[in-house]
Design a protein around this nucleic acid. Structure first.
Lengths: 206, 206
DNA sequence: ATCTTATGTTTAATATACTAATCATTTCCA
DNA sequence: TGGAAATGATTAGTATATTAAACATAAGAT
């Protein structure tokens, strides 16, 4: 029996070689693919680390087989990520990571006041707000940060090079970010000016 | 290949027929068994609900096979419980559910003040404290309550019949409880007197 | 005591996941 | 342009999970 959770998708008359395209998050395989790509691993590299074959990963990621727990555990150990985190992590495409200045939703508007919300509304969580200052050349390190909770922030001054998972962008004043702290991340000030960020994280980490 | 996550255990010279004994929480199968028992289901009943065979459940619970995700999902759907919750739920035997009055650890002792902590220390979570009054015959219902978070409380007056999962106890003044709200639970005042409970739950539910 | 029923376990047969190898496609470097 | 390297996909064969049925044991009921 083939799992094939999106059986309704096609009469095989259609061209079957859509590259990867439609990011369906349904299915363990799809989740695994996204997580693997976020961590910048190829199927073969993950296969090597996990001690399984790349073919198996390919089949799993296509949702053509349903991996055993032991296999899934091996794979996640190679990332590394816990099974609980794997099933808990929110990977919905609406979970935007980067927000351009103009994209920040405006919460309260007055003639002299403009409040803009970072991320999305209704994430009712207790947060810790920080003011971070990065001197030129500052770097949180190649060994990427990784911890529990969520974090977000707004660049106030200067520019910062932010890496989250496999994505990387340079953000300037007004730009912002929001991501799950579990994703490996790194802050670098590659410019010549001091960079200032207003950030928040939850749960409070110190 | 047998999963056998504790491969270091024996040279097969030893007697291989240790019954099952030692309640090892390690392994998906052991977890499944505990969860199933907490919900008061037999292997056959769960098998019927999930659409798998009781034999398969038996093998899984003995950790002799590693179920596929699709099988595990079917089983958890029959309980019901999400995969994420399954791997997140804390089932360590130190997670005590019922606490007799004398068991409550004393936090602060003075000549006129005695503070006793319900549950364990260092569960630093934001909580909501409630005063609950149950009239004689009151009952939260046969359709057991089930929601996110954790809850605990102390009986101040009268007696309450509390069911949590498959466990049931009648608590009197000074007795207390603490459990994950995900476990199906039910409060009944089977006596003739008003029952009063001081309770807390997290995250705040209203 | 002897049925009956209900429980978990085991076993042979079958369905499925996984491996090892190959194929197909893209990238990129000469 | 062409060849090597790297990536993901596929396929036949093998290992493993799951089924269907029987076995073993215990608890009640009469």
């Amino acid at each position: 029996m083939v799992p094939n959770e999106e059986k309704e998708m096609a009469q095989q008359v259609e061209s079957m070689q859509e590259p990867v395209a439609a990011s369906t998050i349904d299915g363990v395989g799809s989740r695994l693919r996204l997580v693997r790509q976020i961590y910048g691993l190829t199927q073969r590299e993950l296969a090597r680390r996990a001690g399984v074959t790349n073919g198996a990963i390919s089949l799993i990621e296509q949702n053509r087989v349903s991996p055993s727990i032991s296999s899934l555990k091996k794979l996640l150990d190679g990332i590394p990520m816990s099974i609980a985190d794997f099933f808990t992590l929110d990977l919905t495409p609406t979970q935007q990571v980067f927000f351009r200045a103009a994209e920040l939703p405006e919460i309260a508007i007055g003639p002299e006041i403009s409040l803009r919300l970072v991320g999305r509304k209704a994430n009712g969580r207790a947060m810790q707000i920080l003011r971070e200052v990065y001197q030129p050349g500052a770097d949180t390190g190649e060994a990427m940060l990784r911890h529990n909770g969520e974090e977000g922030g707004v660049v106030v001054r200067g520019r910062i090079l932010l890496t989250v998972g496999h994505q990387e962008q340079e953000l300037g004043p007004g730009d912002a970010y929001y991501f799950e702290s579990q994703l490996p991340h790194r802050f670098r000030n590659a410019g010549d000016d001091i960079c200032e960020i207003i950030s928040a994280n939850s749960p409070p980490s110190f």
